[in-house]
Design a protein around this nucleic acid. Structure first.
Length: 608
RNA sequence: GGGCCUGUGGUGUAGCGGCCUAACAUGUCGCCCUGUCACGGCGAAGAUCGGGGGUUCGAAUCCCCUCAGGCCCGCCA
């Protein structure tokens, strides 16, 4: 994305800079300029010295010629990398043959008549523009890492993305409304970050896990179309794509059905991607599949749709085989699925063992395999348990050709899915099936309304308790057939990430009550936790629904990184620590007293 | 709470039972150099190998514990 930025009103006034370091070209020859920036690199040739001066906009070469300006030597001699300096001089065309076509300013240089040191710098603890290396040291000096070309580019992309979203949402009639950061704790869902109240001893605010309830109340208020670039906090363990605080594009719309919400977000993404990352390709329209179909075909509710490697259910084909592992799993209500790995029949025992370890991460106890040799014969430790007809049927079902490897997992459906999902993702990488310049979005719809919680032996709302039931399944709800009840909820997935999640909400008090009846809450609990919502719904709640795309994950995909820390200016480590500021940290007893807290003496700070 | 991986001068790596009195690159410091752009040349300083314990005649190297970071499972309406 190229944009014109006018920063300087007058080039004649005395100022710290007249141009940026990425601005001067062959058209500026012979003008007097003042540049300020950081010293990227110096090249000292004794009588002539080159300084690459950098800022956010680019790099410009400064030249100091001691034969013309010997008085500059004492200053230039003490200049080092990352010093902040100001160079005053004249733009010159570079000598024939010394141009640098790698940078836009490479055909000019600034011949200095004066140089000022605006600030010195210690030697950086790591090479700023060299990528890779120990991340911890970069996080500790995050402001230096951010100074790198790579990070500045990502921050720029993030800015453009959010700016585009704001403009686009505005053009579609959405209002951006801020909601409180100090909210009420609602015990279901993620663990809350808590803020003790000084005024109300023993009571706490919670930081929002999302503005979910508030955006619904805004619909009751008649805002009609709302969005917010909202910060959300969840006190749960981190992952490569999860931070304790993250940013959502929170959206809610009134008088809409599922289709309206999906189309809105699909339109946004379809406009956004080419605008901020022209080199990325997307597929339109976004494919849709049910949750059930997604898990059946990919083993996941957030499949990477850039490649196939689909799961094939072969339960029917193996149920009469002599292989006890398969038949026992089927008897116990489990399933047997396979993935065809093209061209992998030559895999060594070691490679297969590695893949088996990958499957085990998903919970599988083992992974069976069959290699279809080039001549068509089957090489497999389990081949002896199958008749030739069964072997043939398996190959046909999996569409296997000579040279392919089939891997099987048999277990409970959830274990088979999780295990083969891991195998599929691993092989997508190994077989280089992903094109990093392609983004394949997809909609996963018809999520189950309820989820059985083994721990509490009760049914939980899978999305949240205000999520609308699929109208076709209201009967099942009434008959307490909760497992089959589908929700009017949907996820946007992209390249294997869950990018957004949303639903149509219940605006009917009656249905809402029926949902609560099925959840393990007493009427008192419901009133205490959700009373404000239920009250509001009695004052003319319009039909409404919404969605919340994760901004950080979106930018991860746009920026070609697989780590969420890369797209957040000041992220936290996996233990949710800010190693730059050293947060969290112990606090003074006086402050604790103010909020009526005392620390359990048996607890030691992790930093002592 | 659990599993796996990583930890060697400032930084990035090599070394993986004795050739290690720990190597290389880069950075840093000093001297030289008029056209470089990862400038070049000469020279110097800099790590007891995350920490502790053990095995061994001998440990950066093997074992145990521990700390830190990362990835994953659980968790994340």
């Amino acid at each position: 994305m190229s944009i014109v930025i006018t920063i300087f009103e007058s080039k004649d006034k005395l100022m710290l800079r007249t141009h940026t370091c990425g601005e001067l070209t062959i058209h500026d020859i012979n003008i007097h300029v003042t540049l300020s920036g950081w010293v990227h690199r110096t090249r000292d040739h004794g009588t002539i010295v080159f300084i690459d001066l950098k800022d956010r906009y680019g790099i410009t070469q400064l030249v100091i010629d001691y034969s013309d300006h010997p008085e500059l030597k004492p200053t230039v001699d003490i200049i080092h990398s990352e010093y902040v300096i100001q160079g005053i001089g004249i733009v010159r065309k570079r000598l024939e043959g010394t141009e640098n076509s790698n940078i836009t300013t490479g055909f000019i240089e600034v011949e200095l008549v004066k140089v000022n040191i605006l600030n010195t710098s210690k030697t950086p603890p790591f090479p700023i523009n060299q990528i890779g290396g120990e991340e911890l040291i970069r996080l500790k000096y995050r402001y230096l890492d951010l100074r790198s070309n790579r990070m500045l580019k990502i921050m720029e992309l993030r800015h453009h993305t959010i700016k585009f979203i704001r403009d686009w949402m505005n053009a579609q009639g959405f209002w951006e409304i801020e909601t409180p950061m100090l909210m009420k704790s609602t015990p279901e869902g993620a663990r809350d970050y808590l803020v003790p109240s000084r005024v109300h001893p023993g009571e706490f605010y919670a930081l929002p896990q999302s503005p979910q309830q508030l955006k619904q109340l805004l619909m009751v208020a008649g805002i009609d179309r709302y969005f917010q670039i909202a910060r959300c906090m969840r006190d749960e363990d981190l992952r490569a794509d999860r931070q304790p605080e993250f940013t959502q594009l929170d959206v809610e719309m009134s008088f809409v059905e599922q289709e309206d919400v999906l189309q809105t977000i699909e339109d946004l993404m379809t406009a956004l991607v080419p605008a901020v990352t022209p080199h990325k390709r997307i597929r339109s329209p976004f494919p849709r599949m049910t949750y059930h179909e997604s898990v059946e075909r990919y083993g996941s509710d957030k499949p990477d749709l850039r490649y196939g490697l689909e799961l094939v259910n072969v339960g029917d084909l193996v149920k009469d085989s002599q292989f006890n592992v398969f038949t026992a799993a089927l008897t116990k209500g489990g399933k047997v699925q396979t993935i065809r790995l093209p061209g992998c029949a030559s895999y060594t025992r070691k490679q297969i063992d590695e893949l088996q370890e990958v499957a085990k991460i998903g919970g599988a106890k083992g992974m069976a395999w069959m290699a279809i040799e080039a001549n068509g014969t089957v090489r497999s430790p389990i081949a002896k348990f199958f008749t030739p007809e069964q072997l043939q049927a398996l190959q046909s079902a999996a569409d296997a050709d000579p040279g392919d490897l089939l891997v099987f997992v048999a277990d409970k459906p959830a274990v088979v899915a999780a295990s083969l999902d891991k195998v599929r993702r691993e092989m997508g990488k190994r077989l280089k099936l992903v094109d990093k310049d392609e983004i394949v979005f997809g909609w996963v719809v018809d999520f189950p309304m309820f989820e059985w919680n083994e721990e509490s032996q009760s049914w939980d709302a899978m999305h949240h308790p205000f999520c609308m039931v699929n109208p076709e399944d209201v009967e099942k709800l009434l008959h307490n057939d909760l497992e089959g009840v589908r929700a009017a909820s949907y996820d946007l997935v992209a390249n294997g990430y869950e990018l957004a999640s949303g639903s149509i909400r219940i605006h009917d008090r009656e249905i809402q009550q029926r949902i609560f009846d099925r959840l393990p809450y007493s009427p008192e609990e419901i009133q205490q936790r959700f009373g404000h919502m239920l009250d509001a719904f009695e004052y003319g709640a319009p039909p409404h629904g919404g969605i919340a795309p994760g901004v950080d994950r979106l930018i991860m995909i746009l920026a070609d990184t697989d780590n969420i820390r890369d797209v957040i200016a000041f992220p936290k480590t996996q233990k949710a620590e800010d190693v730059m500021m050293n947060a969290p940290s112990a606090i003074d007893d006086v402050l604790l007293n103010d909020v009526h807290l005392s620390i359990n003496k048996s607890i030691k700070s992790s930093k002592e």
